[in-house]
Structures are given as C-alpha cells and as structure tokens.
C-alpha cells in the first residue's frame, strides 16, 4: 500500500496547567490516504482542535506529547524544528481551514494583506502574480466580486463569504493536505451545505487529501470517505464511512448514531457526560457511560485492533476476535 499522506499513531498528549495535568489525547491513531477525505468525529471538548494543533506544531504552552508519532509524507513531523515547520509545512504542504470564519480573519488588515502573507512566503513569483493567482481561486470558490475582494476588510463579508476566502487561501499554496477544523459549524444550514459541496468538488478536482474535523455525523455521511471516531481523546473506531455509519462496532459510535436527530425520531441521549481530561477514567474512557461495560474495561490499554478489512475498533467486545494481545 502507498505511504499515507498523513499517519498519526498512538498519539498521547497532556497539557500541564494550574489545575494539574490534563490528559487530553490518549492513543489517537488514524491515517489519511492520497485523495481521500478523512472525517474525525467527536463531541465538543474531545480534543479535536488540540489534535490539529499537534499536527501543525502550534500547541499551547504547557502541552507535551507523551507518546506517538505524526508522519506526513513519510516524515516524522514531531522531529521538525519550529523554523522547518514554518518553512516547509505550515501554509505550504499542509494548509488549514479554521472553525470560525468570523474570528479567524484579522479585523484590522485587508483580506489581501493577510491571505497573501502566507503565499508570499511559500510560493515563488511576484506579489502581482500572487494576487492574480489568489483572485483566480476566489472565482473558483464562487466568491462574488472576486476582483475587489482583496482590498476589502473582513467585516465587509458575510460568514459564508469569509469561509470561501479562507478556503481559497488554503488552496492557494497548492497543499498536499488540507486540515479543516469544523469549517461549517459557525455557518447557517444553507451556507453549510454549499460549502460542503464546494469542498468535495475541490478535493476531487485538485487531487487533494483532507482531514475534516467535525462533531456532526450528518456532515461525515455527506462528505467523507473514511471516518475516525474519538471519544474523550481516545480513538475508538476507524473505518470506511459507509460501513461505519451503517454498522458501527464501538458502543460509543452506536450511541452517537442513535442520538443523531436525523436518524431517530425519539431522541436518545447518552447517559452521563464526557469526563474532564483532568480526571479521565483509567482504561477505556467510555466505560463509565457504556451499557456493555465490563469490569475489565478499566484495565485495558487503549489500542485499535482490526476487526474487519480497513475497519479498526478499540473495545473489549472485539478483543476476543483476534485473540487479544
């Protein structure tokens, strides 16, 4: 099999703060193959944004990666220096679409000034050529009045338009991988739909790979080729979107699907609440809320095991199938 564009393996991350050590990620694993969209799904607070920050090397102060690997195009990103990341990864080979287009653009600078900043650093060519390239992409993402956009300020655009600006910026540097952090969460439903369609088109046209983070299973169903489900900082299940959504293996994935409003008329919640990373339970972090929990769940070391081709799950219920380890 070809080397995946991005492979995260057994990633463990803690942030030391005033209240002690928050174990935010505990054994996160997934990979993104060339040309595919991988959806990372998890409830809010489960560590999705922190995971992205770890990949891009922009972790907050006090964060420490305790174990695991992040390989991008075969290279270990964790071994890169800050300068190397800036020069060869961030904004060049990996680009980023942020969650909230209302907050992600600097309000005091023209859109052109900020979006061209990264291009100027990472692409050859004159400022004029950069402007022309960016304007072309702005037309491609269907921004109205693309020619005038670069001289305007962020507040002169609607949320959907701003997200198109940020998508254009993410594509302008011709990345290998686009990382999107809930790019439609802050938008209204209609705009959300348009942006999803646009992203799918762009990925297919340009042969990109994308890591698409979301808390919304409906979005995953619509957009993603494969899915990784995270609960409280632990990877619980990775698999092809069609399989995983139709026949979830992990009790958490199943519960998540069951409470998706599109799927069931009578809304069932999951009893209990997501544990704080400061007080994460031992073993499987979902065990305290799991209907099928066993005493041994709290003793397991987290580890994904293949349960079907291309489909891995981390649950005691499936350990027996390949004899455990």
């Amino acid at each position: 099999m070809a080397v995946p564009v991005l492979a995260v393996e057994g990633l463990r991350l803690a942030i030391r703060g005033d209240e002690g050590e928050a174990r935010i990620l505990d054994h996160v694993s997934f990979s993104v193959a060339q040309g595919e969209i991988l959806g990372i799904v998890g409830e809010s607070g489960c560590g999705k944004s922190t995971l992205i920050r770890a990949i891009l090397g922009i972790l907050p102060r006090g964060a420490r990666i305790g174990a695991g690997e992040i390989r991008f195009e075969g290279e270990n990103l964790l071994a890169f220096s800050e300068a190397e990341l800036d020069r060869t990864v961030r904004g060049s080979r990996i680009s980023f679409i942020p969650q909230d287009p209302y907050l992600a653009l600097n309000p005091l600078f023209t859109v052109g000034a900020q979006l061209l900043e990264s291009m100027r650093r990472h692409l050859p060519g004159t400022p004029r050529e950069h402007r022309e390239q960016l304007t072309k992409i702005l037309r491609r993402v269907q921004l109205p009045d693309a020619e005038l956009a670069l001289d305007r300020y962020p507040h002169q655009f609607s949320g959907g338009q701003r997200q198109r600006l940020l998508i254009a910026a993410a594509l302008a540097c011709r990345p290998k991988l686009v990382i999107a952090d809930e790019p439609t969460t802050a938008l209204d439903v209609t705009t959300q739909q348009q942006i999803l369609v646009l992203l799918r088109e762009l990925v297919d046209d340009m042969g990109l790979s994308m890591l698409f983070v979301t808390h919304d299973l409906g979005v995953v169903a619509e957009l993603c080729d494969r899915v990784g489900v995270i609960y409280a900082g632990q990877s619980v299940e990775n698999g092809p979107a069609r399989h995983l959504l139709r026949a979830p293996m992990h009790p958490y994935t199943a519960a998540l699907l069951a409470c998706h409003p599109d799927r069931s008329d009578d809304f069932v919640g999951i009893p209990g609440s997501v544990p704080s990373p400061l007080r994460a339970p031992p073993g499987c972090r979902f065990a305290p809320r799991c209907a099928q929990a066993q005493p041994a769940c709290t003793l397991r070391d987290p580890a994904l095991r293949n349960a079907a081709p291309g489909h891995a799950v981390d649950c005691i219920l499936y350990d027996a199938q390949d004899g455990g380890r």
Binding site: S95, F96, L103, A104, N106, E117
Partner: peptide, 20 residues
C-alpha cells in the same frame, strides 16, 4: 482565533507579532 490561524498557515514570526 486569528492568531492561531496566522500561526497555522505559517506567517513569518516577526511580522506576526510586530505587525498583525
């Protein structure tokens, strides 16, 4: 958030702080 974004897309460090 925009500072996180600017770091994520590799704005030069000096300009990020002293300008943006």
């Amino acid at each position: 958030d925009f500072v996180t974004y600017e770091r994520a897309v590799g704005f030069p460090r000096g300009r990020l702080i002293w300008v943006y």
